[in-house]
Structure formats: structure tokens, C-alpha cells
Design a protein around this nucleic acid. Structure first.
Length: 802
DNA sequence: CTAGGGTTAG
């Protein structure tokens, strides 16, 4: 139907293009545009801006970032006036900021910020002004990538360009910082906005005051909820009142969501109950009675408190029972379907199917209609609870409803949710099978496993997931990166991981026009780590670092650290962590912090960097094939260095990731399990380094460390209860709960004093140490380097598979 | 530019 003739009138192209865009056929639109270009190019001209706009909008709708960027660049390059007259007047770009920002926003939403940067550069070169919208999109994009320092840089760049931020941009900044977990920064922006109003109203001048609005505060509430600061989230209502911002239903939803995030599900539920004074048949709802502890008292407060949204008692002292407080929502600030969905998925996460269903019921009684998101959350609840038959039934029900109401047709995320469930089912399936095999007359040895190996072909859950992928295609639902990643994670989480299948599925991704992202790489790294193939894990990590389309995140880093640890290459883990930790050196104390930590970390630091530089010389480009095509890491790439990990140069240049608590925990765990004499000291050094760099310890890390302190054998350098007590003292300084600390202290004191304790007497004072210990303390680097190289205890990879 | 659903790390 779209056969475009060679000699069509120019204006016909425009009609064809907008027709194609209207029907969503972006390929045809592109093709028509190409012809159009050919037609006008001989005259040294370009299609008008309006045509570019139509086409780019179409590509935006279809999520075709690269095509949109290519088209934009044509517009930016402008008409090439190299026609008959040779070098003519400089061409003018057929692009304005608005057109650029459409593509930029697409980049921001798809995580393609490198591409966005090239566009911004091109805008600059072609003299297209970058105003608030452009800068705002950059802030948004980096925020979605959770790259706080890039957000900083974008805001600085804006100031340098002398563009005064407006509310929209500042709200974007607040949101970006919230997404990065940089709540302090977010608060700073909000406080600055508030202050700007005060100072300008005082001075009377029209200085760049930007007043916060409802969205500003709603975003802040979201952040406070994410940070677990529930009381402050509620207290924000007062700040809003002061600023003259009216709470709206988003405010109400955000507060309820904050309750959910902070684990106060009952409180969240109570707030829903009160906001909708459910007048229906009273006790007729008893079938779904929910034992929310405050439900009894809510009947008394229910009717009276429909006045305003103001909080009268945000005490909330002991968790859920005092939950509702005197707070309720009214007027335009009534929670909506979003709040119900948030509470529903809260119960879903807790694995509480029954209560999730109760929320659905309350919702219906309240006259709020569930949407696809709600049903998807319910589907997630089924999956979480392991109720696969129910999940399938719900899914089919949605399919049926979708016939009548297109809004309820399963979308990509709905499919993904079910796919995840099926993959989890597959794991269980295999676990059951292993149990069966393990029994009497089951699999006893390797030969037996060989016999059973064919049964290990992909379990039916995975097969069903793949069938759903096909189903998506037939129903015109686009698979996303997440779809494939979910299946990938499914095969990689099996025991043993099926790496051959994983590679095949990863290829599928490319075939579907999807771009492997950091999650994809992380999954592959995890899989190779689990099968004990460190070379392949390393190649995948290296490929991620040099893949211009992917943005490495901390999870990828942690996956790689875990792979190193699992495969027994602790030096590589240490050097990689060390390289990443350079990104933590911020602020004025950076130099002092880094020098003091490298001194205190002794062997760890120096061994690490030497391993890294070692590697730089011999493995440059060894895994180059994976460069742009993603993690095609096969098992072929063997030539990587023997220790140390990825090229130091690549690491330094591309590892724009700050290690977090998990990163340190992963390595500390490896050290704690190591039999190396210095591992214990390194673990402690790492703990202090982490603290010095502002990474907070968490319960898991402390647990790992303290357990190691208890298990320590009597040996110089091993962790001891004494080390444990130091950690506890440090945690006390951090303000950890005394009861928790006391419990841990007791655990430590229950340890039978080892000989190492005796050695440690007066260690701080310097005297009386064993000769061996003294030597270790004085020259840890040289000897531990050797140990790093040869002496580490290889952690046996338990899943050497069949 | 703001609220709800899915995927990754110990």
C-alpha cells in the first residue's frame, strides 16, 4: 500500500510520511523520507522542519532512538549547498531546540546519554541554542541512570551557559537526585527554592526566584519515603502549607506509597480505609476481613476526619497500631488507583496473597477501578507466592478482558511478570528434580549425571517462558530488554547455569533489535561466575566497560566482584574494587582520605594496583571482538591476564561507578572465607577504607565480618573477637541500636579465646608481638604480593556441573 | 518535570 513512485509530487511525501506515522509504521515512514531526501537533495535543499518533526515524533512513539538521532543529524547538518555554484553560503540547520529535545528526551528515557551528548555537541556546533528544556532533559537522563555526579555536571553546565533554571528543571533536579539516592542534594535544591522566594519577596526585585510547587514537594515525599524517613515525609505537608502549595492526590498517593516502602503496610491500608468511608453493606465485607490492627479504631475516626489533609499527630511511635494518626485525605487530595496499587504490591512483596486480594476488594467497594497496572501487580503477587496456576489464569483473564477493553490488554510488563514467574518455577522444578535424584538409587557419581544430563535440557518453565516470547510477537507486544534479561536470568540461575543457552538467548536480543544493557552483562557475568569460568566473566565485564551503548552500574561491578570471589581470584576482586573506589574520593578531604586508606589497607591496596598494572601490559584488546556487538563472550577468549582482571586503563577510564556496601561485602566475604594468612587483616583494612570513604556498613556486612571474627582460627593475621569488638565500637559511633550491638558483643565474648588473642595483647602499643606477625606488619606488600599470586585458597567452585 | 506495575548484586 505504500509503494511510493519515483515521480511523486514533493507534497505527497509529506502526506505519506504522516500517514505512516499515524499507523505506527515507522519503517515505511523512514523509507518515504529517504525518497523525499533524494528528491530534494539535488536542489541542495532539505524537507521542511514540519516534516522532520512528524517523522521524529513517529520514531519517538516507536522508541527508535538511533533512527531518530540519525534523522536529527540530517536536520542539524542542514542543507548541503554544494550544488552547482560550488562552495556556497553556509548551510542552515533545519532543526530547532524543540526538534532536538524530542530526540534528547528519547535518549534520556532509554538511557542513551552518550548519544544525547553527541546531539548536544552537534547543537552547539550548528548554533542551535540550548535552553531550559535541553538542560532539563540532561538532568532527567542522568538522574534515570542514577549518575549523581553527572547530574551535578549538567546543572553546572547550565549555569555556565547562563541559562537560569525554571521550576521544571529544578523539579527535574530534585527527581534526579531522589533517583540517585542523593536525598541531601534533593533537599538542598528544595530549600534553595524556598529561600529564593523569601529573599526575593523581601528585596522586591525580580531576582531569579523560583518557587517550589506541588510537584516539587511530591517528589521530595517520594524521596523521603525511599529513604525510610517516613515522619519527615508526612511533615512535608507543613512545608507545603507554608509555601502555599496545595496537596493533591499525588501527594496522598506518595505518602501512602512511603508507608508501604517503610514497611508500614497496615498504616497504608488504614489510610486507604479512611479516605474512602466505605458505606456499603457494613458487615457484608466480613468475608474479606483483614486484621489490620488499627481497623478497630478506624471505625471511630472514620467519619470525623474528612476535613483537611493536615497531619495532627505524626507521632507514629510504635509502628503500625497508632498508624493512621489523625491524618486523612480530602477534596482533591484523595488517593487514587495508584495508592491502592502501591498497597496491593506491598502485600504482594510480603508474599501475602490474601491481603493483596483484600486491597483489590476494598478498591472495588470504594468505586475505584483497577487498571492494567493493578492487575499486573496482582499477577506479581501470584508469582511471588508461587501460585503459578493462578497467575496463568489471571493472565488469561486479562487477555479476555483485553478483547473488550484494549487498555487491559497485557503489555510488555505484564508479560515480563509472568515470564519471571515461569523462570522461578523452573528453578523449583530443577531443585525438586535434584532432590529426587539425590535419593536412594539416584544419581551417585559423575557417570550417573552423564546419563541424566539430557533431562537437564531447559526445564518446562523456561520453555513456557520462551513460548510467551513468541506469543508476544504474535500479539504485537514488543519484547523489551527486560523480557530477555528475565529469561536470561532464568537460565543463568538454574543449577547448573546453562551458559550455552544463555549465549543463544543473548543473541536473540540482538536479533530482536534490543540493545544489551548493564543488566544483561550482569546476568552473563553472574552466570559465568557461577560455572567457575572467570575468563568469560571477565570478558563480559570488559565488554560492558567498552560498550558505548551500555552504562555500567554498580550491580555489574558487584557481579564481577562476586565472580572473582567465587572463582577464587581475590586479587582481581581487590584491584577492581580499588579502581572503582577511586570514584568515591570526593570533596575536600579526598586526598587525605585516599592516602590514609591506602596506607592503612597495606597489602590490599598495593597488591591490587600492581595486579592491575600487570594486566595492562599483556591483555590490551584481548577481548576486543565483543566491542560493539555486546557480550559475545563465548568461552573462546582465553588470553586475558592471569590475575588482576580487566585492563587498568579500561577500568580507570570507564568504571564510572561507585562501589556500595554490597561491593565491599562481596569482597569482604571472599576474604573471610579465604585461608590466606593476611586475609583477615585485609578484611579489616577494607572495612576501614569503606568507612573512610563514606560507604555505610549494613547488617549483612557486619554479620559476615563478625562471624569471621568468631570462626577465626588461632593464627596471626586472622580475624579475632578483638577485631569484632573494634567493629562494634565503630558501629556504636555510627549510632547503631544498642540492643543489637549488645547481642553481637555477647556472640563475640562467647568465643573461646584463641592464641591469637594473646599475640594481640598490647598490639596497639607495639610491643610483644610474635616474630612472624611483626614481619607481616612491617613488609606486608612484598610477601602478600606473592601470596596474592600463588597462595590464595581457591574456593572450590561447587557447581563444576556435568 | 511529579505518584503506581516488571529485570540485576551479598
Amino acid at each position: 500500500m505504500l509503494r511510493v513512485g519515483q515521480h511523486v509530487d514533493i507534497s505527497a511525501y509529506e502526506a505519506v510520511i504522516s500517514l505512516c506515522v499515524g499507523t505506527g509504521d515507522w519503517r515505511a515512514a523512514l523509507k518515504a523520507f529517504e525518497r523525499y531526501l533524494e528528491g530534494v537533495r539535488s536542489a541542495g535543499a532539505l524537507p521542511p522542519l514540519a516534516t522532520f518533526r512528524t517523522l521524529v515524533r513517529g520514531l519517538q512513539k516507536a522508541g527508535q532512538v538511533d533512527a531518530a538521532a540519525a534523522i536529527l543529524h540530517i536536520a542539524l547538518r542542514g542543507a548541503s549547498s554544494s550544488s552547482s555554484s560550488g562552495a556556497a553560503a553556509p548551510s542552515l540547520p533545519v532543526a530547532d531546540e524543540q526538534l532536538c529535545s524530542v530526540v534528547l528526551d528519547l535518549c534520556a528515557e532509554t538511557g542513551r546519554m552518550t548519544l544525547a551528548e553527541t546531539i548536544v555537541d552537534a547543537m552547539h556546533d550548528r548554533g542551535v541554542p540550548a535552553g531550559n528544556v535541553t538542560h532539563c532533559i540532561l538532568v532527567k537522563g542522568y538522574g534515570r541512570q542514577r549518575r549523581a555526579h553527572r547530574v551535578d555536571a549538567a546543572l553546572r553546565g547550565m549555569r555556565r551557559a547562563r541559562v537560569a533554571p525554571d521550576v521544571v528543571t529544578l523539579n527535574a533536579a530534585v527527581d534526579a537526585y531522589v533517583r540517585c539516592g542523593e536525598l541531601r542534594r534533593a533537599e538542598q535544591v528544595v530549600r534553595a527554592m524556598e529561600a529564593s522566594v523569601l529573599s526575593s519577596s523581601g528585596g522586591g526585585g525580580d531576582s531569579g526566584a523560583v518557587a517550589p510547587n506541588t510537584r516539587t514537594y511530591n517528589t521530595l515525599i517520594k524521596g523521603l519515603g525511599k529513604a525510610g524517613r517516613l515522619d519527615e515525609a508526612f511533615a512535608t505537608l507543613e512545608a507545603m502549607a507554608v509555601s502555599g502549595c496545595e496537596a493533591d492526590s499525588v501527594t496522598a498517593n506518595s505518602l501512602i506509597d512511603a508507608c508501604v516502602r517503610c514497611g508500614q503496610l497496615d498504616r497504608a491500608y488504614a489510610l486507604l480505609l479512611r479516605s474512602f468511608s466505605v458505606v456499603s453493606g457494613g458487615s457484608s465485607s466480613s468475608s474479606s476481613s483483614i486484621d489490620v490492627s488499627s481497623s478497630g479504631s478506624s471505625s471511630s475516626g472514620g467519619g470525623a476526619s474528612r476535613g483537611s489533609i493536615g497531619s495532627s499527630g505524626s507521632s507514629s511511635g510504635s509502628g503500625s497500631s497508632s498508624s493512621g494518626g489523625g491524618l486523612s485525605f480530602a477534596g482533591g487530595a484523595v488517593p487514587s488507583v495508584h495508592a491502592f496499587t502501591a498497597v496491593l504490591s506491598g502485600f504482594a512483596d510480603a508474599g501475602d496473597m490474601a491481603r493483596a486480594l483484600t486491597v483489590l476488594e476494598l478498591m472495588e467497594r470504594s468505586g475505584v477501578t483497577a487498571n492494567l497496572v493493578t492487575y499486573t501487580a496482582l499477577l506479581g503477587a501470584c508469582v511471588k507466592a508461587g501460585a503459578l496456576p493462578e497467575a496463568r489464569r489471571l493472565f488469561e483473564g486479562l487477555r479476555a478482558k483485553g478483547q473488550r477493553d484494549p487498555a487491559l490488554r497485557p503489555n510488555t510488563i505484564t508479560y515480563n511478570t509472568l515470564i519471571v514467574g515461569l523462570c522461578r518455577l523452573a528453578e523449583r522444578e530443577e531443585a525438586d528434580m535434584r532432590q529426587e535424584w539425590g535419593g536412594e538409587g539416584g544419581v551417585q557419581d559423575r557417570a550417573d549425571r552423564d546419563i541424566m544430563a539430557p533431562v537437564c535440557a531447559l526445564p518446562s518453565g523456561i520453555q513456557e517462558a520462551l513460548k510467551l516470547l513468541l506469543d508476544m510477537k504474535h500479539n504485537g507486544v514488543a519484547a523489551s530488554e527486560t523480557t530477555i534479561n528475565s529469561i536470561l536470568d532464568g537460565v543463568v540461575s538454574l543449577t547448573p547455569p546453562r551458559m550455552a543457552e544463555a549465549e543463544a538467548i543473548r543473541q536473540l536480543m540482538t536479533q530482536l533489535g534490543l540493545i544489551p544493557n548493564s543488566v544483561t552483562y550482569s546476568i552473563m557475568i553472574k552466570g559465568y561466575g557461577r560455572v567457575g569460568n572467570l575468563e568469560a566473566a571477565r570478558a563480559a565485564f570488559g565488554a560492558l566497560l567498552r560498550d558505548p551503548r551500555a552504562c555500567p552500574d554498580v550491580v555489574a561491578l558487584n557481579s564481577y566482584l562476586d565472580a572473582c570471589v567465587r572463582c577464587g581470584d581475590l586479587p582481581a576482586a581487590l584491584s577492581t574494587l580499588d579502581a572503582a573506589a577511586q570514584n568515591l574520593a570526593v570533596g575536600s578531604s579526598a586526598a587525605a582520605a585516599s592516602s590514609s586508606t591506602s596506607a592503612s589497607s597495606g597489602g590490599a591496596g598495593s597488591a591490587g594496583s600492581s595486579a592491575a598494572s600487570n594486566n595492562a601490559s599483556n591483555s590490551t584488546g584481548s577481548s576486543s571482538a565483543a566491542g560493539s556487538s555486546g557480550a559475545s563472550t563465548g568461552s573462546s577468549s582465553g588470553g586475558a591476564g592471569s590475575s588482576g582482571g580487566v585492563d587498568a586503563a579500561v577500568l580507570a577510564a570507564a568504571l564510572d561507578v561507585r562501589p556500595n556496601t554490597v561491593s565491599y561485602t562481596t569482597v569482604v566475604l571472599g576474604l573471610a572465607r579465604s585461608a590466606n594468612v593476611y586475609a583477615g587483616r585485609k578484611a579489616m583494612a577494607l572495612y576501614y577504607e569503606m568507612r573512610a570513604r563514606g560507604v555505610p556498613p549494613d547488617a549483612v556486612l557486619v554479620d559476615v565480618l563478625l562471624r569471621a571474627c568468631c570462626n577465626a582460627r588461632a593464627r596471626a593475621g586472622a580475624l579475632s573477637p578483638q577485631d569484632g569488638r573494634r567493629i562494634l565500637a565503630d558501629l556504636r559511633a555510627l549510632g547503631w541500636d544498642e540492643a543489637v550491638l549488645a547481642e553481637k558483643a555477647e556472640m563475640l565474648s562467647a568465643v573461646v579465646p584463641a592464641i591469637s588473642e594473646v599475640w594481640k595483647e598490647g598490639e596497639e602499643g607495639g610491643g610483644g608481638a610474635d616474630e612472624q606477625q611483626r614481619q607481616a606488619a612491617r613488609e606486608p606488600t612484598a610477601s602478600s604480593m606473592l601470596f596474592d599470586k600463588y597462595g590464595w585458597n581457591r574456593i572450590e567452585s561447587r557447581f563444576k556441573l556435568f
